[in-house]
Computed example of a mutant assay.
Amino acid sequence: MDLQEIPRVPTITKEAFLKQYFGPQKPVVVERFIEDWPAYSKWDLEYMKEVAGEKVVPLYDDRPVDHKDGFNEPHARMKMAEYVELLKREPTKFRIFLWNVLKEVPELQKDFSYPDFGLRLMKNLPMLFFGGMDSYTFMHYDIDLANIFHFHFEGEKECVLFDQSQTPYLYKIPHSLITHESIDFKDPDFEKWPGLRYAKGYKTHLKHGEVLYMPEGYWHYMRYLTPGFSMSLRSVARNPKNLGKALYNLLVMRHFDNLMRRMRGQKWIEWKNRQAILRTDRHLNGA
């Protein structure tokens, strides 16, 4: 795919961030921004096992969407201590997705602060994400189209991003936030998915302590090259169009999709998958 490396800076001021990246809505990796956080030296898998070992965590994998699944409904649950041991023992597709630090382990709040990037961060929604080696998320964008600051801890993670202008080439599933699940963004088949040849995006590898800024509504695919975890802080969309789309997603889209799953079952999922292909094909053919 046509992917350029995301720009990297050692550190950044609020003024430079707002002018060079937030204003034009471009991604950036800040390499040395959180070294004064206790989390920088403390947070690894063993520490998470120590402070949250008895917590039961929601787990997700890469199985295809089924009509019986609710919106963001986990595929399994496990104690954090057992999950960490699984991560260390063998590759696993199980990931933790959107795990609220403040709600689940309030003491972790002492290990980080809310950085001043010039945006008002949602202080009640610091979310953790964990994954085993070679586990990945489907290419997706967040339901609220927020500005996201993604802080990575332990190991290495591959990130591929696209802005919303590239949606016509990505085989987006209608009434959803993901692309067609059969696409392997690690090694895409351009014969099967020709639209991907035209998509222009970004890529990077995140290491411990690095921060990725993902602008509003950016599509993102995350693959764990080693076991590890990240934390996301977010700020609401500022662009009125994105804010309107976020409200639609939250108030209408997800409820409509759940209703159609109940009414039509797997036929609804299959129809959406076909539509993703047809709509991208129509775009490629200039229809």
Rank of each mutant, 00 (worst) to 15 (best):
Q164R: 12
K79R: 14
Y218R: 09
N124F: 06
K49L: 00
A52Q: 05
S41M: 08
K267F: 07
I148S: 02
A287G: 00
P188W: 09
K88L: 10
H205E: 08
I12Y: 09
D61A: 10
W193G: 02
W193H: 09
D163P: 12
S182W: 10
K186L: 12
M231N: 08
F22C: 06
L87N: 08
D189P: 04
F71W: 12
A237Q: 06
H140S: 04
R89E: 09
I277A: 03
V105F: 12
E156S: 14
M80T: 05
K49H: 04
D111N: 13
E82F: 06
R254K: 15
F112L: 13
W268I: 04
P168C: 10
S235W: 07
P24T: 07
L108G: 03
A16H: 07
F162A: 03
D144I: 03
K200N: 15
Q166M: 14
A146N: 15
D116E: 12
T13L: 12
T280V: 05
L243G: 07
P64T: 12
L225E: 11
Y213G: 07
E191W: 04
C159V: 15
M222T: 10
G228W: 01
Y224S: 10
N239P: 05
C159W: 03
P10W: 06
F149W: 11
N124C: 02
S41V: 11
N249A: 10
R120K: 15
F151H: 02
G209M: 08
G155M: 02
G244L: 05
G195T: 04
G53E: 09
D189I: 05
H150T: 07
L18A: 09
R8M: 10
D281I: 04
Y47N: 08
P115H: 04
W271A: 12
P215M: 10
T226L: 07
D281Q: 15
K123F: 00
L243P: 00
W271K: 15
S176F: 13
G195V: 08
W43A: 02
N285V: 00
M127Y: 13
S182P: 00
L45P: 06
Y218A: 01
F33Q: 06
S135M: 06
L3V: 11
Y40Q: 03
E5H: 03
